[in-house]
Amino acid sequence: MKYEVLVQLKGEVLDPEGRAIQETLKSQGFHGVASVQVAKRYVLDIPGDADQSEKIATEISQKYLANPVAQTFSVKRLPS
């Protein structure tokens, strides 16, 4: 199974990269973009039982890929 993990800053934490992109978009005429959030994408390939591998993907995300102090994450199973 392949799992896509997205890690990004929590909403209340300043995301300077997202803000820089949003300001550039605005300068290019895209005034309607209220904000941009940047995320880091990891794809984990974990062969085996689906329930078990999803648990492993979530555990890895919680313990390693995201730092809960300032980041959130989501785990999504990718179509095989």
Partner: peptide
């Protein structure tokens, strides 16, 4: 130290990148 949770908080990319 913060990643090991010996100290609290986190160090993020500088505001001006």
């Amino acid at each position: 130290l913060v990643e090991t949770k010996i100290l609290p908080g986190m160090l993020l990319h500088n505001e001006k990148l």
